[in-house]
Simulated scan of single mutants.
Amino acid sequence: MLQFGEPKSGLTYVERPAAFGIAGRDGKVALVEVVRDGGRHWDLPGGAIDPGEDEAKALVREFGEETGLKVSLGRRVVNVAQRFLKDPKTPVNNRGGVYEVIVDGEDAALKIEDDHTLVWLDPGEALTCLRHEAHAVALLFWMRARAA
């Protein structure tokens, strides 16, 4: 597993199982633009694995909640971990797989996270926008595999 994010002195990072996905369409990739607490960032869709879920179930659920897209899992691109502050008081280390996903359709009823907006970006632009190094590296691995 590739680990990203330098630990900040004095913080204890909670291990947080998570899964993220890369969906491609018409030469672009899906990201979520997150606007929260006066800030804005871009992530791959996905997130934490809830109790009783595996990576596949969590990713399908999270993708729907954040984007309104129905997806199924393709191949695993890479396993990554990313240390970051989920909020000013919550240091976490997201750990898990990043998968290629297939968009099976749309269902607006799935989208419940109002601070997340689905955006489709050119993969090169997405690389420069992504908040987490782990997401950018996963996207780079995905791009290289598709070019081979």
Score class of each variant (00 low, 15 high):
Arg76Thr: 08
Gly24Lys: 05
Ala30Met: 06
Pro17Asp: 06
Arg40Glu: 11
Asn94Ser: 13
Lys89Ser: 15
Gly24His: 01
Val78Ser: 15
Leu59Thr: 05
Val101Arg: 01
Val80Trp: 00
Glu65Ile: 02
Asp54Leu: 10
Lys57Arg: 15
Glu65Ser: 10
Arg61Ile: 08
Ala56Ser: 13
Arg25Phe: 01
Pro17Tyr: 09
Gly38Cys: 08
Gly24Ile: 03
Ile49Phe: 06
Gln82Ser: 14
Pro17Ile: 04
Phe20Tyr: 08
Gly39Gln: 07
Asp54Thr: 10
Arg76Tyr: 01
Arg83Gly: 09
Pro88Leu: 07
His41Arg: 12
Arg40Tyr: 00
Ala30Asp: 07
Leu73Tyr: 05
Gly97Thr: 04
Val80Glu: 12
Glu66Cys: 02
Glu65Trp: 07
Glu15Tyr: 01
Asn79Ser: 09
Asn93Thr: 07
Arg16Pro: 01
Leu31Lys: 00
Glu65Lys: 11
Arg75Cys: 08
Gly47Tyr: 02
Val98Cys: 13
Gly52Arg: 05
Val77Arg: 09
Phe84Gln: 04
Glu66Gln: 14
Ile102Gln: 09
Glu53Thr: 03
Glu100Met: 04
Arg75Phe: 12
Val80Ser: 10
Leu59Gly: 08
Asn93Leu: 11
Arg76Val: 11
Val101Leu: 05
Lys89Asp: 15
Arg76Lys: 14
Leu31Phe: 09
Ala30Glu: 04
Arg75Gly: 12
Gly97Arg: 06
Gly47Gln: 04
Ala18Lys: 04
Phe84Tyr: 15
Thr90Tyr: 03
Glu53Gln: 12
Phe63Tyr: 14
Gly21Ala: 10
Leu59Val: 00
Ile22Thr: 10
Gly38Trp: 06
Ala81His: 03
Asn79Leu: 12
Ser72Glu: 14
Val60Leu: 11
Thr67Val: 07
Arg25Cys: 03
Val78Thr: 15
Asp50Ala: 10
Arg25Ala: 10
Leu69Ile: 08
Leu85Asp: 11
Val71His: 00
Gly38Tyr: 03
Gly52Cys: 04
Val35Ser: 15
Asn93Gln: 12
Arg25Gln: 09
Glu33Arg: 15
Ala30Asn: 03
Gly64Gln: 04
Val98Gly: 13
Lys57Phe: 05
Gly52Lys: 02
Val78Cys: 11
Asp43Cys: 08
Trp42Val: 06
Tyr99Ala: 13
Gly74Ser: 03
Gly96Met: 13
Leu44Asp: 12
Thr90Asn: 07
Pro45Arg: 06
Val32Gln: 08
Gly52Glu: 02
Glu65Leu: 08
Gln82His: 08
Phe63Ala: 15
Asn94Asp: 15
Val103Leu: 06
Glu33Ala: 14
Ala81Gln: 12
